[in-house]
Design a protein around this nucleic acid. Sequence first.
DNA 1: TTACTTTTGTGATAATATTCACAATATATA
DNA 2: TATATATTGTGAATATTATCACAAAAGTAA
Lengths: 210, 210
Amino acid sequence: MKTNKLCIMRLSKYKSALYRLKSLGFVRIFSDNLADAVEVTSSQVRKDFSIFDISGNKRGGYKIDELIEKINTILGKDELQKVVIIGVGKLGSALMHYPGFEKEGIKIVAAFDIDALKFKHKEKTPVLPLEELPEFVRKNNIKIGIITVPATSAQQVVEIMLSAGIKGVLNFAPIQLRGNDDCQINNVNLEVELENLIYFVNVLIKTKGK
Amino acid sequence: MKTNKLCIMRLSKYKSALYRLKSLGFVRIFSDNLADAVEVTSSQVRKDFSIFDISGNKRGGYKIDELIEKINTILGKDELQKVVIIGVGKLGSALMHYPGFEKEGIKIVAAFDIDALKFKHKEKTPVLPLEELPEFVRKNNIKIGIITVPATSAQQVVEIMLSAGIKGVLNFAPIQLRGNDDCQINNVNLEVELENLIYFVNVLIKTKGK
DNA sequence: TTACTTTTGTGATAATATTCACAATATATA
DNA sequence: TATATATTGTGAATATTATCACAAAAGTAA
Ligand SMILES: NC(=O)c1ccc[n+]([C@@H]2O[C@H](COP(=O)([O-])OP(=O)(O)OC[C@H]3O[C@@H](n4cnc5c(N)ncnc54)[C@H](O)[C@@H]3O)[C@@H](O)[C@H]2O)c1
Ligand SMILES: NC(=O)c1ccc[n+]([C@@H]2O[C@H](COP(=O)([O-])OP(=O)(O)OC[C@H]3O[C@@H](n4cnc5c(N)ncnc54)[C@H](O)[C@@H]3O)[C@@H](O)[C@H]2O)c1
């Protein structure tokens, strides 16, 4: 079973589109419709599905409910995913209180900081001292953590997370983190995203000029 | 000149690594060092450079200052990039006040919302009514906008932006936006990012089990 | 029931992206 | 200055990803 990051991201997008289409009253769907919704080709959709042995009905398409369920299973969403956030600054607290994650079965169960002013032991999503992270992670069997600390602290934080047993990190600090083979580190680098956009807009403007 | 999105993103990362290496006292750099810093292969670095006719010295590597300048030129960073934000909620205001963009020559010059409670006409980065966006964009020759409104408003907002003359959109709403050939729309979908991470962590845990 | 149409599923093919490998050459060394 | 060595720059080779194209299957209509 060959998979790659882009393929998995497309699965997420298919799922999201399927929820929308379902709420619009659709019960069955064709690769064509999904392709439109996600802006890929229909053979891309079918190929992605075939990689995961998702099959529909020739001429009948796919049943939306079944499809959503299969994709959720592939994406490991059968159970609620518990996630912690490290760094409760501007970005961290925006993420912490974002209701969109819980709708997707992702629950921010706690956050950690080193600034005592940020601590909130009694909230439904507590903000705790960083020292308590290892114990919390072990007790609650947390696998995923989000890093929203300044770049200068990020490497140090990731090391604490790894030794606590975290297996997956989503890092927002604009710096390349060193991990190990036991842990998947993905980066969201918004400076890079903006620069990329600026580049392609410049290309666009130039090629339109002629 | 063949380019692709990943290659441009790597250029951004090289640049970021170069600033760091420079601050550490380096003056010259080899493809090998950069490769380490960005976690790619050294031939990837050299190939990326050769695509843009960036050349170094055989045996002498690259001069950091020249390299930074060349990459900045490619990325269109010779002049300050003015950007607007639409949607001053939790995420939008985090981005609006993030100093990291200005360091990279990206300036958030104004934000727009429909909620009168958010308006701030007198701040250095004003929050203005959405109706004023078209005029502001034209007067200030803005090319880039960031969408941080709820998914339900995003399509409507992007249409206003396009007709105002915006050429590039960074969209944080978890929905596929329709644009046109005159405009580059890039998406940052954090739900998708997290789901992706969860998938690969599950793969990791499974393969470690055996 | 049969002919016709639509859509899937997938091997073959094409396009893209990365790595290899090595000649060319700039610098260091003796 | 001559020799040794490290590093670039890039075609060729490989690997990865996406598209094509069509046989097979399933629904529809007559
Ligand atoms: N704010 C944005 O819009 C934005 C955009 C792009 C990238 N980022 C990146 O995201 C990260 C957070 O940005 P922010 O604007 O929220 O910063 P911030 O300064 O508002 O918040 C950082 C938080 O991390 C905490 N912290 C610092 N060191 C820590 C440590 N060792 N352990 C635990 N907590 C620690 C601080 O107490 C603070 O609460 C930064 O790396 C930044 O570069 C932010
Ligand atoms: N907060 C997060 O951490 C987070 C994470 C992932 C994705 N997102 C996405 O980012 C977007 C913003 O999230 P948020 O948490 O900041 O939401 P929010 O509700 O805090 O803020 C939304 C803002 O947009 C404004 N708005 C609504 N309709 C508008 C319109 N038509 N024109 C201009 N402004 C309008 C609202 O007045 C509000 O100020 C959403 O699409 C959300 O799905 C947010």
